[in-house]
Nucleic acid binder design. Structure first.
Lengths: 186, 186
DNA sequence: CTACGTCGGAACGCAACCGTTTCGTCGTGC
DNA sequence: GCACGACGAAACGGTTGCGTTCCGACGTAG
């Protein structure tokens, strides 16, 4: 009977370690040290660093996100951006996501887990928004869905993760309105 | 008198090693091995892994990019996207850029070098495009420039680096037209 | 109350890389 | 044509993490 409090301590330590040093530099020894447990406790639960991280990413993926439904494309986008920007500005997420994303380019298993998390998160929500807008006639029904998702998700990700500049007041609103205009032009 | 051919072999090896294992896992020993030189040859030129990479990134940054000038916002964007997508689809760039970008979240010196490269590359070009469009009256002169740059650069980066799905025929054209529409709505 | 399994801790041998030093070779500049 | 210096190779002692094993302590299920 594995102790749940120990398991939880390890999970937290992995998140912190991942944010602090990144996947590549992260070590089982470091995780156990940070969690205040023995290496044995970690190896008893997961076979390797990879299994550990895949497990955590999958756990997050299943959480899912609430689908906005304000009745208008721009309103839905605005709501999506509120939620997304809050998540991305969280220091832990802001460090871990680009790190794992870079790692995914090198490791197919991580890539798959990230894709799945993406699909069940941001990606799925954005897709719902586009379809609702199409049903209302706000955008063409035969638009390129993948392109639409890129237009929706790209700018905020770029700003929050790559440029990393603070978002001025009114930014999300203008972003939602400009993106809606772009989608309607498709 | 350091031999230039050795220096060049090391530079190439760094790029390859960076793409293959990433900044965190990259070692001086590995670089020397791949370049077919002694460790001494590397240490004689650069003090550490960090100096080496900063030097390479800076060298790329100064290259700069040609500023498109087709006479229309959409045309300029289209041209920018052609160049950018070709660069991002290059396997080496596609691996190295997200890796260093993730590393930048952890290392201020790398962050600064990347920001500079960004400013003198993609960023600067996009800025020129927006200003030309404003001068022609295609977009408002008082738009939020940072937001405009996010709208321009975000979607393609997201698609090419995060989603990593092939770009279908006509994608760049539609992307340019939708982005232009978004910018005009600002 | 006993027996089993998890706990943290310590040590194992092994591998990789650190940054430095020493070596003998080779090539170039003066 | 000689001397200087860069070259590749090898070895240095030290650090870190690997994955495993053993230990005695604790706690809980039966």
């Amino acid at each position: 009977m594995l102790r749940e409090d120990v398991t939880e301590a390890i999970r937290s330590a992995v998140f912190e370690e991942l944010a602090a040093v990144g996947y590549a530099r992260m070590s089982i020894e470091g995780i156990a040290r940070r969690a205040g447990v023995g290496k044995t406790a970690v190896y008893r639960r997961w076979r390797s660093k990879l299994h550990l991280v895949l497990d955590l990413v999958s756990a997050i993926a299943v959480q899912g996100l609430p689908a906005p439904d304000t009745g208008s494309l721009e309103g839905d986008l605005r709501l999506l951006y509120e939620v997304t920007s809050r998540a991305l500005r969280h220091p832990v997420a802001g460090q871990i996501i680009p790190d794992l994303q870079a790692e995914a380019a090198r490791n197919p298993e991580i890539a798959e887990a990230m894709q799945k998390a993406l699909r069940e998160g941001q990606y799925g929500v954005a897709n719902g928004i586009v379809r609702s807008a199409a049903a209302r006639g706000e955008v063409r029904a035969d638009l390129d869905e993948d392109l639409a998702l890129d237009l929706i998700s790209g700018p905020l990700y770029w700003r929050a993760v790559v440029v990393r500049t603070p978002l001025p007041k009114g930014y999300l609103g203008k972003l939602a309105s400009a993106t809606a205009a772009g989608l309607k032009a498709l």
